[in-house]
Every structure is written in structure tokens, then in C-alpha cells.
């Protein structure tokens, strides 16, 4: 019995210490500064932007668009399946869901925040420069600069956060704080407060994929830290380039329609 627990512990330790399977035999090409090259145009290929947790197919918030606006089924990208909300926060999430047609910041064309920006159904480009790493998102002309130098403290609350990055081997680790608490995680109303702390990890697993992880911590909303993970896919089209999705024009009737002259 004792032997068995020892071997279990040894096994668990081994699992913990060993790098994940995908990291074992791929060495990413180098960027100009010698670090792993993560640059390129990437996009998630899942339904996390609809709902981070497991979700069955269902009608979307707009029956007028028929099946076009309906929600496809999708599996949870949350480790352990469920976001560990505190009871009051779970009630707030349910209210968000009920009001998602008008209250989801995506409907209003507001900046997506972190981590949501990385799994919206739009491509984004990673630019690795000697000054830092810039994430340029097609959605809403959003972007965020990741400072790779001496970490800086947030000086004001923002949608996209204050982002400090560093390398752990070939993994880009981004520590993001200084959020304004207004962004949602998805169209299902999942949310956090301005105390949100996100630690993201970007690892290139082969030519066409990045493994993306984000660990969330916010004691005012969640009972414990939690994590999402998913692959990001390279846009391999020969003519792939980031285009423009300035969505303000598509949200003005929703936001200001009540003030239009009748």
C-alpha cells in the first residue's frame, strides 16, 4: 500500500516536473533577439468567445438573424470545467447573461480586455520588437503593448491592462493587471472585477500553433484562481494580413438609437 502511494507520488511529481508532451521535440525558430519567434497572425478556432464553459447549442440573443446568430455547442476551455465563482458573483453572471444582447461589451464595440481579446473570432498579430511585444487585434483596432523591460506598475485602470512580460525558456509569460473591471470574458456574461490579475503563457508548439494559457485571480469574484487553455492557429493563407474591423459604426444604433430624431 505504502509502495503504491510512493509510486503515485513519484508519478505525479514526474508529471509535474516533465514539460508537457508538445514541448518535448519542437524547438521554435529564433527572433532577432534570440528568443523564440512567436510573431505572426494567429486566431483561436473554438467557441470560447460564446462561453468559456461547456455549452449546448442554443438560440443566440437575436432571433431576428435566425440561425446566423445562434450559439454552436462547445466544450469548456476552463481547467476543471467550471469557473469557481463566489455565490454573489455567480448571480451577477446570470444577470449579465440575461442582458447580453445589450450589455455585452462586444455588442457595444468596446475593447475586449484580456484574456478575451485572444479568443475572439478575429485574427491578431504578434509583433516582437526590441522595444517590447505588441499585440495588434483586428477587432475594434484594439492593441496592447507588453513591456519586456523592468516591470511597470499600472498608473490607471484600463480595458487592456498594464502588461509586463518575460521569457521562461521559450514561453512568453505576460503578467496583466490594472484592469477597469468592465470587460467580460465571453458572450455568456462571465466577468471579473478591477482586481483581476491574469498571467498568460504563449508557447509555440510547432510551425502553425501556439499553446495559450491564462490563469485568472480575483478574490472579490472567484473562490480560487482558475485557468483556461487552448491552441491558437496560424493564419496560413499566402495573402494573410490583418485587416480592419472598426465596429463603432455597427454599435451606434444600439447605443444611441433612443436619441435619434423621430
Amino acid at each position: 500500500m505504502q509502495n503504491r502511494s510512493i509510486s503515485l507520488i513519484a508519478g505525479a511529481t514526474l508529471l509535474f516536473v516533465l514539460p508537457p508532451l508538445w514541448a518535448q521535440n519542437y524547438v521554435a525558430p529564433r527572433a532577432a533577439d534570440g528568443h523564440a519567434d512567436l510573431s505572426g497572425i494567429w486566431e483561436a478556432l473554438n467557441t470560447a468567445n460564446w462561453d468559456l464553459e461547456d455549452h449546448s447549442p442554443q438560440a443566440g440573443p437575436m432571433w431576428q438573424t435566425g440561425a446566423i446568430g445562434a450559439e454552436p455547442a462547445g466544450q469548456s476551455v476552463v481547467e476543471d470545467g467550471v469557473i469557481p465563482y463566489l455565490p454573489a458573483a455567480l448571480e451577477e453572471k446570470k444577470i449579465n447573461f440575461a442582458n447580453r444582447r445589450t450589455n455585452d461589451p462586444e455588442a457595444k464595440c468596446y475593447m475586449p480586455g484580456i484574456p478575451r481579446a485572444n479568443y475572439m473570432p478575429y485574427p491578431f498579430q504578434i509583433v516582437q520588437s526590441p522595444r517590447g511585444v505588441l499585440f495588434v487585434y483586428e477587432y475594434g483596432s484594439a492593441n496592447r503593448f507588453v513591456n519586456m523591460g523592468k516591470p511597470v506598475k499600472p498608473v490607471s485602470d484600463t480595458w487592456m491592462g498594464t502588461n509586463n512580460g518575460h521569457w521562461e525558456g521559450d514561453t512568453l509569460v505576460v503578467d496583466a493587471t490594472g484592469f477597469n473591471g468592465l470587460a467580460w470574458f465571453d458572450r455568456a456574461g462571465d466577468f471579473a472585477s478591477d482586481k483581476l490579475h491574469v498571467v498568460e503563457r504563449f508557447t509555440r508548439t510547432d510551425r502553425e500553433h501556439l499553446q495559450y494559457e491564462a490563469a485568472m485571480e480575483d478574490p472579490s469574484v472567484f473562490s480560487r484562481p482558475w485557468k483556461i487553455s487552448m491552441p491558437l492557429y496560424r493564419r496560413v493563407e499566402r495573402n494573410a494580413q490583418l485587416l480592419e474591423f472598426k465596429c463603432v459604426e455597427f454599435a451606434e444604433e444600439l447605443l444611441y438609437g433612443q436619441y435619434r430624431k423621430k
Binding site: A32, V127, Q128, S129, P130, A142
Partner: peptide, 16 residues
């Protein structure tokens, strides 16, 4: 910002 083969110009106002 620059990286090999790219120059990025980021404007402060309207964050483009």
C-alpha cells in the same frame, strides 16, 4: 516599433 520585415505605427488617439 520594428521587427524584421515590419514597421508598426501605433497612434495614441483612438489606439490604432
Amino acid at each position: 516599433l520594428q521587427s524584421p520585415g515590419l514597421v508598426v505605427i501605433r497612434y495614441e488617439m483612438i489606439h490604432e
